[in-house]
Design a protein around this nucleic acid. Structure first.
Length: 481
RNA sequence: CGGGGCGUGGCUCAGCCUGGUAGAGCACCUGGUUCGGGACCAGGGGGUCGGAGGUUCAAAUCCUCUCGCCCCGACCA
């Protein structure tokens, strides 16, 4: 082993993805300072860098949500047990993982209060009071909040006891409008994932076995992680009239007749951060898409002697001024680390672009940019920086999406029978498209023999033309998180 | 919830089998030299060995219980 490799192991050794992907994931989350374990089992602290990613996601997704006409609101975290229990399927689905408040101060409560695992119950309760006439519809609200599910197995970001998310809840006059809303939001999630997170996804319908408890139909977007396992990245539910009936949400239509509303709910959580990490990361660490990266470009100043420092420092200031607020820029002027050390650290943390500024660059009146996604280098004159850097960030964003899509497509196969699938999954992972007639028995058999589950029935089956026969759909199966 | 593994300075771990004065590397602090891919020298600080009980003259080490984390499976955003 060379001297360099030897030293490398000591300083910052990250497990290779190929050696142990799960371990790589946990290490990268902690070493990149995205999150850390909290004193309570299954709970995490989201550290400033990780929260910066979340804030960027929130900002971008929130804008897309509001563009559909939904408004933000806030409902309380505590839900009376009697309210939660009104919808039987819903309760049954969540019962094992609800956390309860049983005491206030030193007094036992008369009724237990659930810490929301999701807010259908309490929101429906309020909707039943607010909705009277068809003129009140549609009602479209969204809330950004925390939720709690007492999961047995937890993993940073992917499944934590407490998590952050947004949950949208809408009420409509008829099923067609509700269905439109469900699909509109699915499209919002798809475009958000692909355009902002650079994660290619399949948008589709869940099987009955995989749908949300209490929903008539669940839709999701499904992404493929670098280890070949699928991850449900966001969901959109058609709630039909189940909740409207048990929570008595009715309105008078134009004819004066009383009708139950048709509802939807849709959500995306901090799990998406896990999706970003596992869709793009490599053996060097994180790779963040520029649109959500808290730091889009980091300046690493380089100098040997004081004279050089005296030249480099003011030049770095000119770089900062040139870029203004066009780019989220960070200048790493820490004295105690060498440039090489900083390169590695910022690569680990997934900063999309590094700008090296040393004596040679100052002489040329340029900075040396290095991309995180492919290490491509490019010297950019100071006067071109304000134009070039934002463009370069767009190029990185697009290249990351293209790379992720190429990976996803390389890891998508087609099978026709369970036997073929069984053979396929012995050696490989990824998505497998098969003709599916909607049979739960087929689904169960595949799961038993391959470990893969039906991720979704793609809304757009055109990539698999001719695969599904009459009365059949294309089913996308994969082993999943 | 089953099966396996692990808890020892901030991090990665040695020490445990065979009980007897808590160690290493990295990180951190001070000073100096350094700086274009994880610098070097000198000096220094920091740990009730996850927690609780027990055995023993004596426990990081042996026993019991408990908490937490990781990995693999069954359930879920």
């Amino acid at each position: 082993m060379s001297d360099v490799q030897d030293r490398k192991r000591f300083v910052e050794d990250l497990t290779d993805q190929g050696d142990d992907f799960s371990r790589w994931y946990t290490e990268v989350v902690r070493k990149a300072q995205l999150a850390d374990y909290a004193p309570v089992r299954g709970c995490m602290v989201i550290r400033p860098y990780g929260f910066g990613i979340w804030e960027n996601m929130q900002r971008l997704l929130d804008a897309r949500i509001k563009a559909t006409g939904a408004q933000n609101a806030y409902f309380p975290i505590l839900i009376p047990e009697s309210l939660l229990q009104l919808e039987a399927d819903h309760v049954e689905g969540f019962a094992p993982e609800v956390a309860w408040v049983t005491q206030g101060g030193s007094e036992p409560l008369e009724e237990r209060l659930a810490i929301r695992p999701t807010s259908e119950a309490i929101i429906c309760r309020m909707y039943s009071r607010w909705i009277e006439s068809y003129r009140d519809l549609p009602v479209m609200m969204n809330q950004w909040c925390n939720a709690m599910r007492w999961e047995k197995v937890t993993r940073l970001f992917l499944r934590t006891t407490e998590f952050l998310w947004q949950e949208g809840h809408t009420a409509h006059a008829n099923h067609a409008e509700a269905t439109d809303e469900v699909l509109r939001m699915l499209e919002v999630y798809r475009s958000f994932a692909e355009e902002d997170l650079a994660i290619p996804v399949h948008a589709g319908r869940k099987s009955l076995a995989e749908k949300f408890a209490g929903a008539e139909m669940t839709y999701s977007i499904e992404a493929l992680m670098r280890d070949g396992k699928a991850l449900q990245t966001a969901t959109s539910h058609d709630l039909g009239q189940h909740f409207a009936k048990v929570f008595d949400i009715t309105y008078q239509d134009e004819t004066g007749a009383r009708q139950h509303v048709w509802q939807t709910s849709w959500g995306a959580s901090t799990r998406m951060i896990g999706a970003v990490i596992m869709s793009h990361g490599d053996d060097q660490g994180l790779k963040l898409p520029p649109r959500i990266a808290p730091i889009q470009a980091v300046v690493v100043p380089i100098w040997r002697k004081d004279e050089e420092r005296a030249q480099v420092r003011p030049f770095v200031e000119r770089v900062r001024e040139a870029l203004g607020d066009r780019v989220r820029l960070h200048v790493d002027d820490r004295d105690q680390y060498t440039p090489g050390w900083k390169y590695n650290e910022h690569e680990l943390r997934g900063v999309p672009i590094r700008l090296e500024v040393g004596p040679k660059d100052v002489t040329k009146g340029a900075v040396m940019s290095v991309r995180r996604d492919g290490r491509q280098k490019e010297s950019i004159p100071l006067e071109a920086l304000a134009e070039r850097l934002p463009a370069l960030l767009d190029e990185v964003q697009r290249a990351m999406f293209d790379a992720a899509r190429a990976f996803r497509d390389e890891n998508t196969a087609t099978c026709r029978t369970v036997a073929e699938m069984e053979a396929h999954f012995v050696a490989r992972r990824g998505f497998v498209a098969v003709p599916w007639d909607g049979s739960a028995a087929f689904e169960a058999e595949v799961k038993e023999k391959t470990g893969a589950t039906l991720r979704c029935v793609p809304l757009d089956p055109s990539p698999w033309k001719g695969l599904a026969g009459p009365g059949q759909d294309v089913g996308l199966f994969a082993r999943a998180y």
